[in-house]
Nucleic acid binder design. Structure first.
Length: 463
RNA sequence: GUCCCCAUCGUCUAGUCUGGUCCAGGACACCGGCCUUUCACGCCGGCAACACCGGUUCAAAUCCGGUUGGGGACGCCA
């Protein structure tokens, strides 16, 4: 059975790149009827924070990427990690090293300055040292031959073992390091496919060597290319929002983010829009690209707008309401909320934008746009508006078509264009010169609110 | 510096494995038009790319070599 995993370290928020890696692993496992494991890699006690771990789970849940079983804490498995180190030690595949970190650091600097590769020189390798306070355990890697694998995304990759130095397995304080812990965990948890970020390719040969030293068959590896910012450098905070939860708070729908992320580096012919279930059926590593991709807000916005338009008004209302409530509006009826949502649904790219555009529905008296008022609420304009208002209220209750007729008649009687006749009313009802359909608004607001807003606009005078 | 990886429109990409159907297709963005009571939506049209050089071949975006460019890694971080 296929087993994949997502193994973030809780030293920061779940960012866009991590989310895509998680998504690929999720899709792969779900598509094969396999298992998808979530493992929190918290072996770095200094930098790991519980709040980050919680945030990662929250983001995964929001995206709809469900994992199997309980999330695994790597820190809860250090006993197991140490057992494996002991085994390596007793089999002569690892050794104690008493070099001091400062000296090592100095060596690295020197090597780099001389234009060489900064790597551990293996001076303790044959010393037969035993455990001592502050000493570390290093892997005794082969010094010739190759470590190669068929990358599931990039194809064949190989490293000369000479290039690899003896990596630390157990720190001076007895804590296992990343490279040891991942191998032990992936091995003992039965992970079959390790799909992770590009930045791990250099770790892979070392890990393969560890599997070999343990007498185990390495799993399959696949390295997904990175996501870059607009300036084609690695995506980071300075490129704006990078955390998944930040996108949620900005008003993006999880379906949109998932859809956008999957298309960043993967394609299924010319198809652009995918539901999660469809992705599970269609996703494959074969069509994941090999090169890095630039994150593009425009396309994400387009997808988000697309999914917003697909969301039924009632559902959309439920998503928008918290944003409106946060602005201090009193909760109206569900029907009113749904109508307001339907009215603005095709006019914004995020929930936040929709809330902005729908806000006038919820205000007692919307503030009149000063420029619009100066232009539309002239003496003539107010007279026109008064006439329109009277006709409108007199005709109530009316159908959408009746309103249309009413507007046409008004324009004709007054000798103005339809647009000119409609604008003063739009301003009066919404405070703005651009808005959803006029009669959609009239119907939603109802006669009392219409009248109230009309009266306020008619009372307006230039400053 | 050393090692590893990558290279099709501004961006995401299809096509590359299995050369010809590709004077390169789709999407976003942009530009123009239509629709229209405003703003949007929608629809129609347009602009725009095989990094470069050489080789193999009747034929190369597709195969091979090199150049250039980009990215990543080089921690007792993950």
């Amino acid at each position: 059975m296929m087993i994949t995993r997502f193994a973030p370290s809780p030293t920061g928020h779940l960012h866009i790149g991590g989310a895509r890696t998680a998504l690929f692993n999720y899709l792969l496992a779900r598509g094969q009827g396999g298992r998808f494991i979530l493992r929190i890699e918290d072996t770095d006690v200094q930098r790991s924070e519980e709040a980050y771990a919680a945030g990662i789970l929250e983001a995964m849940t929001w995206l709809g990427l469900s994992w199997d079983g309980e999330p695994v804490r790597q820190s809860a498995r250090t006993g197991l990690h140490r057992e494996f180190v002991q085994r390596l030690l007793s089999e002569g595949a690892a050794y104690w090293c008493s070099c001091r970190p400062e000296d090592l650091e100095a060596q690295r600097k020197k090597a780099l300055a001389e234009g060489g590769k900064p790597r551990y020189d293996g001076r303790c390798r044959e010393l037969g040292l035993g455990p001592a306070p502050g000493s570390v355990v290093r892997f005794k890697g082969p010094q010739s031959g190759q470590a190669a694998w068929q990358d599931q995304i990039k194809g064949p990759i190989s490293f000369d073992c000479q290039e690899l130095d003896d990596l630390v397995l157990l720190r001076g304080d007895g804590q296992p390091t990343y490279n040891l812990a991942v191998v032990v965990d992936d091995l003992t948890m039965g992970v079959t496919h390790i799909i992770r970020g590009d930045d791990h390719v250099n770790n892979t040969p070392r890990q393969i060597l560890l599997y070999r030293a343990l007498g185990a068959e390495p799993p399959l590896f696949g390295h997904v290319p990175m996501i870059l910012g607009k300036d084609k450098t690695r995506l980071s905070k300075r490129h704006g929002a990078t955390s998944v939860l930040a996108y949620r708070d900005l008003g993006y729908l999880p379906q949109a983010l998932v859809n956008y992320l999957v298309r960043l580096g993967w394609a299924h012919g010319d198809q652009e829009v995918f539901r999660l279930q469809e992705l599970i059926e269609k996703f494959s590593l074969k069509h994941v690209g090999k090169s890095a991709a630039v994150f593009n807000d425009d396309k994400l916005n387009w997808l988000n707008a697309h999914y917003l338009k697909q969301t039924p008004p009632q559902e959309l209302a439920a998503l928008m309401w918290p944003l409106l409530a946060a602005r201090g509006h009193a909760k109206p009826s569900d029907a009113f909320l749904a109508q307001a949502a339907a009215a603005v649904r095709e006019r914004g790219k995020t929930l936040t934008e929709l809330a902005d555009k729908a806000e006038f529905f919820f205000e007692d008296l919307p503030a009149l746009d000063p420029q619009g008022a100066a232009r539309l609420l002239t003496d003539d304009g107010r007279e026109l508006l008064d006439d329109f208002g009277r006709r409108l209220l007199a005709a109530w209750p009316a159908e959408r078509g009746d309103f249309d007729e009413l507007l046409k008649a008004l324009a004709q009687d007054r000798g103005v264009k339809i647009g000119q006749a409609a604008q003063p009313l739009r301003l009066a009802l919404t405070g703005q010169t651009a808005s959803p359909g006029l009669f959609e608004i009239v119907e939603t607001l109802g006669p009392e609110k219409v009248q109230r807003r009309l009266a306020a606009a008619l009372a307006w005078r230039p400053a």
